[in-house]
Design a protein around this nucleic acid. Sequence first.
DNA 1: AAACTGAGTTTCATATATTGGAACCAAAAA
DNA 2: TTTTTGGTTCCAATATATGAAACTCAGTTT
Lengths: 270, 270
Amino acid sequence: MDKLATTLTASDGTVGKALDVLDMVAERGQPVRFKELLAGGRFPKATLYRLLQTLTNQGMLAYDAERQSYAPGMRLVRLAHSAWQQSSLAPLARPHIDALASKIGETVHLAQLDTGHVLYVDKRNARRPVDMYSQAGKVGPAYCTGVGKAMLAYLDDADLARAITRQSFYRFTHHTLTTPKELTTELQAIRARGYAFDNEEHEPGIICIAFPILTRAKRVIGAISVTSITMRTTLAALEALAPVIAQTAALIAAEAESWRFPEQESKGEK
Amino acid sequence: MDKLATTLTASDGTVGKALDVLDMVAERGQPVRFKELLAGGRFPKATLYRLLQTLTNQGMLAYDAERQSYAPGMRLVRLAHSAWQQSSLAPLARPHIDALASKIGETVHLAQLDTGHVLYVDKRNARRPVDMYSQAGKVGPAYCTGVGKAMLAYLDDADLARAITRQSFYRFTHHTLTTPKELTTELQAIRARGYAFDNEEHEPGIICIAFPILTRAKRVIGAISVTSITMRTTLAALEALAPVIAQTAALIAAEAESWRFPEQESKGEK
DNA sequence: AAACTGAGTTTCATATATTGGAACCAAAAA
DNA sequence: TTTTTGGTTCCAATATATGAAACTCAGTTT
């Protein structure tokens, strides 16, 4: 399912290792047995064992005794609630996203950049209301999505370079940009234009137009996109919506600025 | 806002401490300055400092340089996505919750028990569709909510005892049960009846009826509730919906059982 | 039954990371 | 300028984490 470049964080301390393990469990997307994790070769048996114990104790993992397997724990959901509420743009952007979605009747996404990847923090689907967490919290590739490219286009050189190293450049469709070179060229175009398209680069049949959400100082803090399907629309038709979307992005930016502007990428790699 | 008994997890190792700090940040519900955390008196300056650094490095916290404050990081949202998807009842229960909500046109909650507190994992609000994360991931008290009591009623003695020690028994309204004694009496009634009510015990004007979701072995794995307001309904009216709700709970239970049954409470306190 | 797996758990001497008091620094306040 | 406040860094003492190897305890095989 996921073709993201696996980010192996330079381990800082025991905590770093524990969180690595957490990631390993979360990434698999289904309950994992000890053996499988061990097979990852990341940690020696005893160490892995104790890390798992600790995490389980702490409710960060849940151990299913019957199946002898680990899954991410509910404590994460609790913590994430806080994170989402106070560190994401979502609560603040909600009314604007709502307005936009109901005005144009297409799916709207709100995303932020997280260690080089796209993190969807909210979604509004015009026809079928809810879709919850099934999208919020979901991670996607940056190099081949509208929101991703819209955000990458506004990173400064250092951050962009770092972000690029994280891209897998896996070819999802034959429109996917598969080299840093192609991508950077595209990013220039996006910066010139002010917004990005996704021309079936991630999934065939799916297109979108995406706008960065920029602070006054032109720092990207997120992006919004309007998605549709080739069967129903064209990129040109989506482009006609540009003004409304741009407007929404601006509103969100303005509001965000007056409240807070969270750091997105931690700067030093240790 | 929150009146939950603060769970001070018996620290295991550095990881435990780090997660404690995470909790401290998350609990505040707004960006925290170093000083405030230090004032908590939980950790000496240098130690706290380094824990914060590590967590920030790891993306579990986000540091806002301008305001010099910490907030829960986006990595949590990413991780929680996994947790929610694979460890909660939500994905599985979704269709049934949807059906129930649209059939009866009232707000439906799906909750699980997390270290003695209620963790809302999904919500369907009939009239105003989405409400997202604003509820999923939210934690509430167990002793004075319908879902909470419905779940407590089916815990075995040991787990119940443990859960009770976590309740704050804060008096939210004058219907709130404020002692373990009152609560256990109520729980007996609930077990006898098969479902619980919330008679304005948490918020004035808000009432609900809640059903536990039980495995064949009678282990609680969650609860669903239908909420309304006294201005519009009565408990008696809600009770009329009992069969439909029970049915939904049973469906969810059946489905859950055939897939997986995650542990909810980690057993040993170390 | 006896011998063998394979998966998970525990031990223990060692290396290492964590600790926290105190010193330090920078910016704001007096 | 001097103080205070709030945050960062040092460093020796010490607690912790480490991981190879030994050990369980099923469930197999032979």
